[in-house]
Amino acid sequence: MSRQELISPEGLRVDGRRANELRRISCRASVLNSADGSAYYEQGNTKVLVAVYGPREPRNRSLAQQDHATINVEFNIAPFSTSERRKRSKGDKRLLEISSFVKQTFEGAIQTAIYPRSQIDIYIHLLQHDGGTLETCINAATLALVDAGISMMDYVCACTAGFIDETPILDLNFVEESSIEVPNLTVAIMPRNGNIALLQMESKLHSSKLEDVMELAVEGCKHIHRKLDQAVLVAAKDLADKLSN
């Protein structure tokens, strides 16, 4: 059996996108009332819900840091997120890996020094899975943190890019991601100064090609930044409307 053609000679990918196109993004902040900040974020068929609590008193005193806040990230995949129901235990290494990536990313972006002896909890729930988990988690968490009013240096926007048949492609979906030979690069940047908050890659890619792929991913991040910005504006307008009433 021949392998699936991930990008046709006509330049269309399996789902009809061109190489440099993102999937459709829709997002909304303030979706949960009980949380301090929350966001719902969709990128294609990948859907996540994030709730942020804090800054608040650490549940465990020993965790408290004298000079800055601790960030706690919990990541969960809903058993119904794929068509084959599968429950994951809490100690699943895949979950821990993603949560630690998200944690590291935001430790650099949140101004933790202004919240000493406190804890910020980020709870991420993946509702539907179709590739690009890490990027959607980071983008959604950014939105929820902004919604919670936590001081950050900047937004953190993440995007994936891969490399198929000599062409860099943006925003891999599940089919593209699960093909082993496709390198999968996730980049998170802080768009204002272009600093890179996270750079992570699976599979192999020759270093000479890395630059092109990264450039494309950064382009994608910038686009996502505009989307998040709009969502924040909408949320702020909502809030303003509520306040003025």
């Binding site: 789902d15 009809g16 996108r17 459709r24 068929n45 068509s83 979906n173």
Partner: peptide, 27 residues
């Protein structure tokens, strides 16, 4: 424009699952 393409597929293990894929329509 976006359509979801959904079809039923047999996995390698022999289970029957429904796969949903995005299907973008272009102009």
């Amino acid at each position: 424009m976006l359509r979801n393409k959904s079809f039923v597929k047999r996995t390698r293990k022999g289970n029957i699952v429904r796969t949903v894929k995005e299907h973008y329509l272009r102009d």
